[in-house]
Design a protein around this nucleic acid. Structure first.
Lengths: 215, 215
DNA sequence: GGTCAGAACTGACCGTTGTCAGTTTCAACC
DNA sequence: GGTTGAAACTGACAACGGTCAGTTCTGACC
């Protein structure tokens, strides 16, 4: 099924819905970025998107939901690009940080909005927007990088890649939460913490070559 | 300074404030537990605590804040007790799970409230209630358990205990978020995930005896 | 092209949280 | 015990998010 076919198959209703959603997302992005999350009202977004404000709640269950949908799109694209440009023949940790760094970079563009996103992320209802799919995609690719390092002998083969990827992401995410949360740490400390703590999880499983060299 | 001295030094204003806070917390706990978080209103809490509802906002910046204050107290006590009863001469992971398990047990009493708490925890303003102190306390004691295992030769001495404790907690917390968040996993899966993933972080640093035995 | 079921849409409405200008209470000092 | 400045308190108020009964649109079928 080509994209054209998809578009052609679309009924008028479906096309209008899609266009409306696009309009909503663009408007929301503009307002959230210009005025901030709290200062933007759902009524305002609806008015600027030229729909009744009740309609807006058919597309996003809540204001937070709207922001998560928006971020999921943007962050998803950023991560996809980062995955496509992972440097080959580099240490595993640098490859992982290449991907996770893309996430950080995106969040750095607007810390206040990122805070809301990161706060909601673990709690959104995944049946609506594809947050679960986004996470699954990210973890799968991280697991592939890990499996690659295992195949190359950089890492011991015992730990299941998926489980290790989950741990690495959990560690990363906790630093992200700390950065965006109450404890105001600066960018430098954030980055060095991310590296040090992920290294602590990977280090132990360093391949036999690496381990012998270090002892 | 004995507690009596503290009480004696207290002015009438200060005593009334303290009593009012106690009354607020007790009332909030009752209502939150009976009716749930959303169904309880700030006006209702204020009325039952016999204060103007504007006053309530002098004691808790928001409704979420109120819940966090309440949980911080309860969970703090639960953790302190767990720390005091850590089994000696057991594997490190069992000791850590003894403490973290106390947290889980408490949250199991009311999952809906725990969800709000866990969602807010990384983002509360730590200058008000002692959330930062609570976390510092927990991480310090976890680090002590780790240092103990290192001294006993159960664990390699390279990893800084504090850093390792942070990682263990991050991993634990991510499973907690997943349990309370969108992906509904059951208690059994939650517990086995917690154990497996923390083991993955600790395993690598198993002391020389243990490592030799396992190879 | 007429009919109809259901999907999409709307805005008046509700109850909420959180604010703030004005009021009361308090303790320290004369 | 009178004065006073500040801290604690209050509830009318504003503005918001979210709901839902009623309305409009749409496309499938005869």
């Amino acid at each position: 099924m080509t994209p054209e076919a998809v578009v052609r198959d679309e009924s008028r209703t479906e096309r209008k819905k899609r266009e409306k959603l696009t309009r909503i997302m663009r408007t929301a992005r503009q307002l959230f970025e210009r005025k901030g999350f709290d200062a933007t009202t759902m009524r305002e977004i609806a008015a600027k998107a030229d729909i009744g404000h009740g309609t807006l709640f058919l597309y996003a269950r809540s204001k937070e939901d709207l922001l998560v949908m928006m971020f999921r799109d943007e962050v998803g694209r950023a991560v996809d690009e980062a995955i496509a440009t992972v440097p080959r023949r580099r240490a595993l940790i640098d490859q992982l940080l290449h991907v996770l760094g893309a996430l950080v970079s995106h969040h750095e563009r607007n810390v206040a909005l990122a805070r809301v996103f990161v706060k909601e992320l673990p709690f959104v209802d995944d049946t609506r927007h594809g947050v679960a799919a986004f996470m699954a995609n990210l973890l799968t690719h991280m697991a592939e990088l890990i499996a690659g390092a295992q195949a190359a002998g950089e890492l011991a083969t015992e730990p299941p890649p998926k489980l290790l990827a989950s741990n690495v992401f959990a560690i990363f995410f906790s630093v992200l939460q700390r950065w965006l949360g109450h404890q105001r740490i600066d960018a430098a400390e954030r980055d060095s913490l991310i590296r040090a703590r992920i290294a602590l999880q990977l280090e132990c499983f360093r391949g036999k070559t690496a381990r012998r060299a270090s002892r």
